[in-house]
Design a protein around this nucleic acid. Structure first.
Length: 439
RNA sequence: CGGGGCGUAGCGCAGUCUGGCUAGCGCGCACCGUUCGGGUCGGUGAGGUCCCCGGUUCAAAUCCGGGCGCCCCGACCA
């Protein structure tokens, strides 16, 4: 067909609100046209690209025994209530009611529908394993769509789901899926990097994310400079440095006026940041309850909320308000795990054991304590790795490689899930794979 | 949800601070001419709720109040 007959026109100037080069080119070339924030029309040229990618995906999914189907985008509330996720998913799940008052949701993912179908189709373990997949629209009511096509509300995803009778079978198909993904990326011409990922709220064990090294990506991943360790920022582990510990000092209360941040305190007292302890406050929310969480971490580190959620066993986190902090007896800016109400849940990062003679808040406006030691002065009930890795840390695998950070843009994940949805009993073990084909 | 920016012709912009000619410019579009050809050159022309609502004023794109939308940073991201 001639370009002169093309439905789409091309543009010499990119729209002012397109910042990323990829976004500018996609619009100027007429691949896509915006309809609303995070919602695009795929124009004829763009659709050709998607169809070509889809063809490759179908061939590779079929090659590992996948059966294609199409599940609905509009799904009745009952399916989400049955899996327990109707009330848990949060605002990303776009709910709406028909005029008659029947409740529906736009599918942001299809596990729940798969569970619904599998429960009706699979009558015996002899029917397993099964691999099904679809190339279908997803709708996620993202709080902030961004970067043109980087993060969309409405998008197309290839998602595959496998159902298994046991863990060995799952592990076998998991590996097949990972290999299938490599073939897809190779054929499509994407230089993907496989990184260890976290399953997040889906739970389960084992997850690989295929990412594109991309400066404007949504997030970061860590890569070891000497070994092949690769992990996204939610999953990256690192080796904690162990400062030399001299003689333990006694606890002393010192005045630290106007020192509400770690930088201020460290500078005022004259110690490195890693000789301070920082308190961070969250409210841990679950469908049935919410609880205040007092988190303690070494001053030079940041809390990784995904790790913290995992340490807490799931649920959601939000930052606590100052009022909620005061209600526990802690003083914002000068909070201390020492002398807290014993009813307050304290979770400490393992870094609190890496160091000595820490400077911590005194729970008294304008004062800090020095010479605080673990476990002599406080002994946290819960200690876990909840710190975010960062550039320059040694990675655990090689024990000496240095971690470097790169931007990442997610092109797909393969996850191995323990069990679909605990509330739906007699469900087979199944895995979810997939998340590519965002144009 | 917090911080910042923007909204004037299909696209890119000027005009707004300091209210007042008929709201302009480039590209694109239509028509006529021109060229072997061209992202050619020349001419003519169409196209505007100046984001919306309200207010101030003799007079509002411009000032004031409210709202909506879009983009960026952060929070979030199953």
């Amino acid at each position: 067909m001639r370009v002169s007959e093309l439905f789409t026109r091309t543009l010499r100037d990119a729209p002012a609100d397109a910042d990323l080069v990829s976004h500018q080119l996609a619009i100027r070339a007429g691949l896509v046209r915006p309809a609303a924030a995070g919602i695009y029309a795929i124009m004829p040229l763009g659709w050709r690209v998607i169809r070509n990618i889809a063809r490759v995906l179908r061939e590779e999914m079929d090659a590992v025994g996948g059966q294609e189907l199409v599940m609905p985008v509009v799904q009745p509330a009952e399916i989400w209530q049955a899996s327990g996720r109707w009330d848990v998913f949060g605002p990303v799940l776009q709910k709406f009611a028909s005029d008659a008052g029947r409740e529906f949701a736009l599918a942001p993912t299809h596990e729940d529908m798969v569970a619904y179908l599998a429960a009706r189709e699979i009558a015996s373990y002899k029917q397993l394993p099964q691999v099904i997949y679809q190339i279908q629209t997803k709708y996620r009511n993202e709080p902030r769509p961004r970067g043109g096509l980087i993060r969309l509300r409405e998008f197309t995803m290839k998602d595959a789901y496998s159902l298994h009778r046991d863990a060995d079978d799952l592990a076998r198909v998991y590996e097949e899926m990972v290999r299938a993904y490599w073939r897809v990326f190779e054929r499509v011409g994407i230089e993907a990097v496989a990184v260890e990922a976290d399953n997040g709220a889906m739970g389960g064990s084992g997850s690989h994310e295929f990412v594109l090294r991309h400066a404007q990506g949504e997030a970061l991943f860590a890569a070891c400079d000497t070994c092949d360790y690769r992990a996204n920022s939610e999953a990256a582990a690192f080796v904690l440095d162990q400062p030399e510990i001299g003689a333990l000092q006694p606890v002393e209360k010192v005045a630290t006026p106007d020192c509400k941040t770690i930088e201020d305190v460290a500078a005022y007292v004259g110690v490195p940041r890693r000789q301070t302890l920082k308190a961070v406050f969250f409210v841990h929310e679950r469908p049935e309850s919410s609880r205040f969480v007092f988190v303690v971490i070494r001053g030079d580190l940041e809390v990784n909320e995904v790790k913290l959620i995992n340490a807490l066993g799931g649920g959601e986190l939000r930052a606590a308000t100052d009022d909620e902090i005061r209600a526990t007896g802690a003083v914002p800016g000068y909070a201390s795990p020492l002398g807290l109400d014993p009813g307050v849940l304290v979770v400490a990062d393992q870094s609190v054991r890496a160091g000595a003679n820490f400077v911590v808040g005194a729970n008294d406006e304008g004062y800090h304590l020095t010479g605080v030691n673990v476990p002599r002065d406080f002994d946290p009930a819960h200690v876990a790795d909840i710190a975010e890795a960062y550039e320059g840390r040694a990675v655990p695998a090689a024990r000496r490689g240095i971690c470097t950070w790169s931007g990442r843009s997610s092109w797909g994940t393969v996850s191995s899930l323990a069990r679909a949805t605990p509330r739906q009993s007699a469900r087979p073990i199944w895995t979810r794979t997939g998340r590519p084909a965002r144009s």
